[in-house]
Design a binder for these strands. Structure first.
Lengths: 220, 220
DNA sequence: CATATACGGAACTGACCAGTTCCGGATCTG
DNA sequence: CAGATCCGGAACTGGTCAGTTCCGTATATG
């Protein structure tokens, strides 16, 4: 992302130990256009869903030839799996988790324009894949690892920190509670088709999440 | 629809005022096989999703000819809309709502094998349609009226009855709370692909719904 | 400049599917 | 039994799309 390649050699490419091979003369580097293509795939996916997405759409969006797509991925399904897998570039561990001292403060601090935008994008992609999840376990794993789990894990960690602090009750069902906001955000976006705005999220935190943890329901 | 005709030949068929027409001799009744076809459509829909569902699949499942489908519905989209619309044959108003005296009793009483089965089927159908909801507003309305709304409305009514009883706090966000179980059930079924069993639902009621209404979180 | 590589783009193939047409048989009416 | 109607099934049409092949070009190397 934002590769201002002043030096035209190294790329973010793993498994590239064949530098000593003497046969390759003129070459441009292997998977240099992967990011654009994967981004285009996610964009089309979020707009059209898996079945309505065509390889021509992806190629056109990425300004690439369809042949280039098939040089790199053997099928549409595997392109989509990799596109989804490469999507987990959001916050997931405690590095970006703000530590405000209270659970409510932490949860509210996560409501930022950028994170809401990223979440909305992930929701749209997930919605386009829902009907495939039962047919393609590999895709289901990728969706889980890239979209479902990171958000739930972050919630879990914040709750556990609050428990360690003695702020909330320790006998609650943390896993269920960590899934309240993802579940209700997904439902609201994909099924009810209503906007997920700051007021909705604050209402969820104060009216559902914190009460479930034994904290008073009032907005403090 | 005020015509309670004591004559014992009525069929559940609207727009059938041509009884005086003398031309029709041998005939079998118009849409006699509609229910089987709509059921077949729902079955295929829940297994394959909208895009992967073919009219041949529906016809084969209903043991009907594809021509019969097109004699009755002008397109695949309209068949699906009607199939979804004819799905709301579950409990929705307070007729089947058990009145146990407490909100927890009412909510737990709704957990029966039959209702869980019906709910699971609706969830699968909804999952097969999610990616279409943004493309077909008419379908989105049908899904909302037949699947989304009935369950939420029932929850709302039970909560309002509990408020009228003075059992729970009156200042909670009823609409949000009424959507907790639908949202988290849908998420668990379609995204997490975990079973929605009695324990999960009881945990949701005791650990999330009742606390959000100001009731103690313990399982009473 | 010569060479080798990978690219974008366009044309092609084969399968699949929505929607249509046609036909033989079943069913009801009189 | 004769006549009319509707059904299931099979064949057909036209369009779309995954995946393939080919070609002219750009670029980097030496």
């Amino acid at each position: 992302m934002t590769q201002l390649d002043t030096v035209p050699d190294v790329q973010l490419d793993p498994a590239q130990a064949d530098d000593g091979d003497p046969h390759r003369l003129g070459r441009k580097r292997d998977h240099s256009r992967d990011p654009e293509i994967l981004d285009a795939a996610l964009a089309v996916l979020s707009e059209s869903g898996y079945d309505a997405m065509t390889m021509d759409m992806v190629a056109a969006r990425a300004k690439a030839g369809k042949a280039t797509l098939y040089r790199r991925w053997p099928s549409k399904a595997e392109l989509v799996v990799e596109a989804v897998a490469c999507m987990k570039q959001g916050m997931s561990s405690l590095e970006s988790a703000p530590d405000t001292g209270t659970l409510r403060g932490d949860l509210v601090a996560l409501i930022r324009p950028h994170s809401m935008e990223e979440s909305a994008r992930k929701m749209q992609v997930m919605g386009g894949l829902v009907s495939m999840l039962s047919r393609d376990p590999q895709l289901a794993d990728a969706v889980n690892a890239a979209i479902t789990e990171p958000r739930a894990r972050l919630n879990r960690m914040l709750i556990e920190r609050a428990i360690a602090r003695g702020e909330v009750r320790a006998d609650a069902d943390i896993d269920t509670i960590a899934h309240i906001t993802p579940s209700m955000t997904a439902y609201r976006t994909l099924v009810q088709r209503k906007p997920v705005d700051r007021d909705f999220l604050i209402g969820l935190i104060d009216g559902v999440v914190l009460p479930a943890l034994g904290l008073p329901a009032g907005r403090s």
